[in-house]
Amino acid sequence: MRGLIIAVIVLAAAPLGLPPFAMTLLTEALILGLLAMSLDLMVGYTRLISFGHAAAYGLGAYTCGDLLLHTTLPLPFAVLAAALASGVIAIGVAWTCTLAKGVSFSMLTLAFAQLLYAVAFKWTAVTGASDGLAGIPRRAGPFGLTVFQTKNGYYYLVLACLLGAYAFCRSLVQSPFGAVLRGIRENEPKTLSLGYNTRLYKIAVVAISFALGGLSGALYSPFAGFANTDLLFWLFSGQVLIMVIVGGKGTLIGPILGAAFFMLLEHVLSLYTESWALFFGLIFIGFVTFAPDGIWGLMRRRARV
């Protein structure tokens, strides 16, 4: 708990000490951290290995982009509406995907994300096809608030969303609802025979996870100013999963660290080599094989010794 407070204070003070370039990286890392944390609800707490979490991100990003481009909705409302839309669409997705279990579930989530990817390529009116949406504004308001238009103001918006989402997820996994999720993770038939409609719980957790993932995507498109089909690509889904595993699944904090680690590594590697995917793959294989608890697991083990 003390560590968490220190981390929050450091993050809140970051704009005072860091150059603008580093702030851009940090903002993006927090956005990705939110996405990875939302996936952790599925992967770490319910053992629903989704290979299509880019779908949540892309849904949020495109919805928010369209709302800002074509309506006069102020930025915070557009972001929230996009997150909500992503969560609602996820109910249908989850209904379908939870027809299957285990690896079939993973494949279905992947197939769904690819379906969205294909749709985004064809539906020019809404997604701008291969050009994507460009020039997404950070509209002022509500009540004439202009603070989110500045770089640091936007950073604080992202930080607030991440902290709010973290508090929500933390209380969710500690609630009776979270206990049922862990029951599904450990032994689904047993949980079912205890009288819990496990499919309903799974649909709920997918919807929540997508809403938070959509929130992160919705924060991304006004931050970057554009949204394109890369956000829905299957490779990106895999990268988010890497962040969760490398950070430490089932810990909420771990995936955020994983996302930051991923961003930093990608940035550093791309300075020295074009083959960042090669090193990434190797690091990922190393983590899955030798450190299944991830970075957070390693840190905690060290703290205990």
Binding site: I49, F51, G238, L241, I242, I245, A277, F284, V288, T289
Partner: peptide, 16 residues
């Protein structure tokens, strides 16, 4: 799920 993820890692490595 460990297999799915290790083989995904292989996808990145081999592809590169």
């Amino acid at each position: 799920s460990a297999f799915l993820m290790v083989t995904f890692g292989l996808t990145l490595v081999l592809g590169d």
